[in-house]
Design a protein around this nucleic acid. Structure first.
Lengths: 217, 217
DNA sequence: GCACAAATTTACGACGGGCGTAAAATTAGC
DNA sequence: GCTAATTTTACGCCCGTCGTAAATTTGTGC
């Protein structure tokens, strides 16, 4: 066997590394089946069979079926708050979030919505995943509100803070949906990036008079 | 052809009226049980038993369990689009939506969030209902986008239209959440109305420089 | 190398929501 | 009253989710 089979070099991790392998094995089979037959038409039992493990093992690793389909949830939920927390000196929250989107679009970042036609079809065809995505947008907005509250030194439930977070998160959510829509329409990533970059300028520009001077680092 | 016997016969509805009665009977028992034990801890079988009907009868009338708890869904989803469609001559969409909220708060409209502590507890305590409410906010935003597109003569997927709808719907959603939070905290309706009316002025005021001249009738 | 302790995987079962189907009860029209 | 249409019911199934305990695998001390 390969001595350095470790993907991330666990010293004490024969058990732990196998755990990761099993998790990845299940996730890979699930992704393949979801893209092939759709999310709702794939059962957990079928995933377990494909991965040659027990059904309970699947539900032990992934508490909810949606977790098998949606990756990088934490990263997604924290992305806007992170962009604000790491904004440049003199940069407003609005400018930082605009810049973060533009950069993500240029890089075709999956977290920004560039996840391929298969993924877009899977999500669009599943009410469960659509609802899960809505919940993620919600978590992202709340995390942004906390970051903004931190930035301006206000309470997290201050109406100006929650409203600013709601407006800024709404723009990001709308652009995310737009990327998904264009992906579903079969447009190539570079064309989508050009389109949404222009649309982002319009959308963030709309907020400019309201928030250009808000939360400047 | 037959006289207009069936289509819209008001008195001829012994069967139809009984249908309504049965529906109301089930809904009433469901509401009582939900408020008493919570949404998740109440089963459809228990509701059926309480209403003395079969379980299948409940699911025939209400396709999803959430429909037993959330009333006036269509009215809620259409409320913002309606406010824009019925705005006064010379009034902007922003002003109409601000006015609609202020009036709803003054009237303690359940559709605006004044639904009582029991309902607020029920929703807050149920992930299912929270997700359903998010979906409703989403439908409401899309309906608003259609109304705005109609008002300004643009395509419904125009970025300015979808963004404006997203921003305006976000403000309403945030104020809705605020009413729910204050209700959960035990505040009386009149105090909540005064608080959120002031907060609405701040929130809509933030959008004033961006949208004061958008979609004027 | 071996045995014991710990953790993981497995099998089994239960519950609840949702859906289809066909029989039984109720109602409308004649 | 009789017949046809609709509503309600009973029954069973699938699927996701959650316990629980047994079986297997792994880490460690001797």
């Amino acid at each position: 066997m390969a001595t350095d089979s470790s993907s991330s070099a666990r010293p004490a991790g024969l058990r732990a590394s196998k755990k990761q392998e099993t998790r990845q094995l299940i996730s890979d089979h699930a992704t393949r089946l979801f893209l092939d037959r759709g999310f709702e038409r794939t059962t957990i039992a079928e995933i377990a069979d494909a991965a040659r493990v027990a059904k309970k093992t699947v539900t032990n690793y992934f508490a909810r079926k949606e977790d098998l389909a949606l990756d990088h949830q934490e990263e997604f939920a924290a992305s806007l708050a992170r962009a604000v927390a790491e904004r440049r000196p003199g940069e407003s929250a609005l400018a930082a979030l605009h810049r973060a989107f533009t950069e993500a679009a240029a890089a075709a970042d999956p977290v920004a919505g560039f996840s391929g036609p298969g993924f877009a079809r899977m999500v669009a065809g599943s009410p469960t995943l659509t609802a899960c995505l809505r919940a993620l947008h919600d978590r992202r907005e709340h995390a942004l509100a906390r970051a903004l509250a931190d930035a301006v030194g206000a309470a997290p439930d201050d109406i100006t803070v929650t409203t600013a977070a709601g407006l800024l998160a709404a723009v990001h959510r709308i652009l995310f949906d737009r990327i998904q829509t264009l992906t579903l329409a079969g447009r190539p990533d570079d064309e989508i990036a050009a389109t949404v970059t222009a649309e982002a300028a319009a959308a963030f520009g709309l907020l400019e008079p309201a928030l250009a001077h808000y939360a400047i680092a």
